[in-house]
Design a protein around this nucleic acid. Sequence first.
RNA 1: GUGGUCGUAGAUCAAUGGUAGAUCUCCAGAUUGUGAUUCUGGCUGUUGCGGGUUCGAGUCCCGUCGAUCACCCCA
Length: 429
Amino acid sequence: MAAFQTVKGFRDFFPEDCALRNYIFAQWRKTACRYGFVEYEGAVIEQTALYKKKSGDEITGQLFCFEDKGGREVALRPEVTPTLARMAAARQRDYRKPMKWFQIGSCFRYEEPQRGRTREFVQFNVDILGEAAQAADAELVAFSIDVMRSFGFGPEEFIIRLSDRRLWTQFLDAEKIAEEHRATFLQIIDKMERAPKEATDTKLKAIGLSLQQVQDFIASVDENSAVFAPLRQNLTARGLWNYVKIDPGIVRGLAYYTGTVFEVFDLKHNLRAIAGGGRYDNLVSLLSDGNVDLPACGFAMGDVVLTELINRSPDALENVAAWTREALSNDVYIVVADETKRTEALQTVTALRKAGLRVDFSLTAQKVGKQFQAAEAAKARFAVVIGAEYPLITVKNLINREQQELQAEVLAAKLVEQVSQPVYTALIA
RNA sequence: GUGGUCGUAGAUCAAUGGUAGAUCUCCAGAUUGUGAUUCUGGCUGUUGCGGGUUCGAGUCCCGUCGAUCACCCCA
């Protein structure tokens, strides 16, 4: 047992884990590019005050925050939206609107690790800045659906739970609930699904409401409500409305959402939300002291819950396996059959790599049998045997075991051609 | 931050308070120009770490560090 272990809540990614992680990143990037989003990368450490301003002083309890050697109060980012808002406020005039930006980056929260939650996780953040119309909200909802579909998930596996903060604003206005109770109210609604009914009722009574009133209001809301009309029309046109379920109980924790809110839920495993987001039209203004007013909406997806879901889904795992097989394989393994030809072997390695092939070989003298085992372990498609007969070279297809003899000067071109062909053609034929 | 369960070889796991083991992996050989299988041999442990009880602790007790589940929180 090693003397040192990973620090609580942090993770190592060994090659197999890293392949899955890169697969997830690749799907995220691919879908983001298809939707016209551009990638950016914000700072990993911010002034602690940035998060206090957005979320209040209590937030420091869940921050990795400290004083640096220059006496600055700083924190590892617990999310990337404040960073984005800061960046947008600083240079939004340089970019045409709408700004469609995405980021893949590690975030850090000092919380107790448990299922679906670590202290370090990767968040995929996708935002549209400078567009107030709900068409932007619809674009994001559609995007979140396509991200899920890119992993092989269909309507049986997940659903979008959609709501709108304005429903509750109207409700609270009608009930004449004071401003200072409204944040508390939204937290009660957020927890209602998990909390016992009596507890919810007690908490609601404390601010002048009752569970019955709230339940009646929720029952009165459906997909025909006017507030959802633009999204419904937009997503129906895209053929995606069947993924959406109206659910007024979705309000999303803290107070900065101003309109549409939605979450991606899996339907089979009762995990926590896979992703969530909504419209936050006032945040850029808040974090820039009112200097920049930029309407915005965005959503975020974490890698931890998504990985759990993938690991429980056979279809999604097949996609991962195919990706991993490709990521952890090589095109060619050079077998040095005659150690006096190592110079020629190194020249061959270099030439094939220059041609763009993935090439590996034994760094030290090994028996031929060992080298073929290594070729197998390296998941190479071809073994290239450099021996006494050089410049005549034996090339063995490690999938169908066929061998051919090639002259050194044509080797690279021939291999590039053969590698470009589908792996299993020979077996099918 | 609070509480439950858990921590033994690289991995998965055994071992009544009484000699720390099995399987797989890995390494070497059988096999000095061809991958599999098989066979033979071999390595790795202060039983997470630190204390305590005991003639004797992997086992019981305390602390600590991790893991896991739940609470809290979930931006």
